[in-house]
Design a protein around this nucleic acid. Structure first.
Length: 411
DNA sequence: TCTGGGGTCCTAGGACCC
DNA sequence: TCTGGGGTCCTAGGACCC
């Protein structure tokens, strides 16, 4: 009998594990990957150019306690996690918990190479795969060869071993009747584990978990649930659908009721088109639109150029151009503008983004500046589509409102 | 001493059209 | 003078995820 079997695969401490392949001498030591690229560490490997990577003594590696900049951890090795440091934690805080940890910058090129390799391995065993970012994937086992054997365990083990053979990296896999449960199952036995769940396992294995484990319930929703005395998925499942709809709205309430009972019919999506692309950067120190005009202007131009390059390299063009600011106090402001035709031209992007900047308050110092292009279509299609007269509406859509003129200091 | 960078999707109000 | 809905597009913000 064919039953729906969906796997979720999660690479173990991916970024850190990629580095450990290069530096096996760091195995067993607390290592943290992340932070912003610093001028000094862009080339710290160069200092050991004539030494085999595996020969570099651990004491020569950059140390977390010496780091004083802004940034967060991308991944930590399991020994580092024992100190309580983990993904998304600020480096400053991590340095207090584990000052002796080694801090390595992210090597995105290498990580991307490993990512492509493990996904390629997966497709060789089961072609219906959904790419969920750099280190995760959903795989439809339902009709894959041997996907039904032992509830999916046989195929999961085979993929796990093939990925290790191809990359030297381990992963954890959960196999379940749907994406929702598979995702939770892949966390049950980390690292290098396999967990097989069936529908009947929901009450025993899923209901005891905190609601936060549901993909889609974040800190806000969790806090609201807790305020109603709901901490576990089981407690969520015990509420009437009507009650949930009443308190969380028609869509969210009904969704919560479904997922609490382990129901999820979402298909595994093998292909999707990007909706937007963006570039943003947090400054070394907060910058002010007036006092740091030149520096800010250069960064702004650079972001637009990078973004245009990204679009062109990937073959897309967009017609909604926007900016994002993060102020000193962490408030975020966005502005965007939809144009008559699509573009991937840095000068056009820069001009439109500059217009957006004129509509946003610039009195307070900024900590981050970003540029975004949305409403993307393939560059090839844009060429044909934009031959027509420019779409109406957009461009002059904004009359500046009083008090919003914001100084015009920068642009 | 806080809190990166890249995304997706949803909501809600206003403009504008039928 | 007051009063309809429905639909789409645009914009700003926010929740969430990797």
């Amino acid at each position: 009998m064919t039953r729906r079997r969906i796997a979720h695969l999660d690479m173990d401490a991916f970024f850190a594990s990629v580095e450990l392949l290069r530096y096996p001498q760091l195995a067993g030591l607390p290592v943290v990957i992340g932070g912003r690229q610093r001028p000094g560490d862009a080339d710290w490997r160069q200092a050991f150019a004539d030494v085999a990577l595996a020969e570099i003594p651990p004491a020569a590696f950059p140390c977390l306690k010496d780091y004083a900049g802004r940034g967060v951890i991308t991944t930590a090795t399991y020994p580092a996690r024992a100190f309580g440091v983990g993904s998304a934690m600020g480096l400053m805080k991590a340095a207090r918990l584990c000052p002796q940890a080694i801090l390595l910058p992210v090597d995105f090129d290498e990580v991307r190479r490993c990512s492509r390799r493990f996904k390629q391995v997966i497709r060789e065993f089961a072609p219906v795969m959904e790419d969920r970012g750099i280190d995760e994937a959903y795989i439809d086992f339902t009709d894959a060869p041997d996907g039904q054997l032992e509830g999916g365990h046989v195929l999961a083990r085979r993929i796990q071993q093939a990925i290790f053979a191809a990359t030297g990296l381990t992963c954890s896999i959960g196999v379940a009747p749907n994406k929702l449960i598979a995702k939770m199952a892949s966390e049950f036995d980390k690292p290098n584990g396999i967990t097989i769940l069936h529908e009947d396992d929901v009450p025993t294995r899923i209901w005891p978990l905190p609601c936060r484990k549901i993909n889609g319930i974040g800190p806000k929703a969790d806090a609201k649930l807790q305020a109603h005395g709901i901490r576990t998925i089981g407690e969520l499942a015990a509420r009437e659908r009507g009650w949930l709809v009443e308190h969380f709205g028609k869509t969210t309430g009904a969704w919560m009721h479904e997922v609490a009972h382990g129901r999820d019919e979402r298909p595994v999506i093998t292909h999707s088109e990007p909706v937007s692309m963006s570039r943003e950067t947090t400054f070394e120190r907060d910058l002010h639109a007036a006092r740091d005009k030149t520096e800010l202007g250069n960064i702004f131009t650079w972001l637009c150029e990078q973004l245009a390059t990204d679009l062109q390299r990937k073959g897309y063009a967009g017609r909604t151009i926007g900016i994002k600011l993060r102020y000193q106090d962490f408030r975020i402001a966005t502005r965007d503008q939809t144009m008559g035709r699509h573009t991937a031209d840095p000068a056009v992007i820069r001009r439109a983004a500059g217009q957006c900047l004129k509509r946003v308050p610039l009195e307070q110092p900024l900590r981050l500046l970003g540029v975004r292009v949305g409403s993307l279509i393939k560059a090839v299609d844009a060429a044909a589509q934009d031959k027509e007269p420019a779409a109406p509406g957009a461009s002059a859509a904004h009359v500046m409102r009083d008090g919003e003129t914001a100084s015009g200091l920068l642009f």
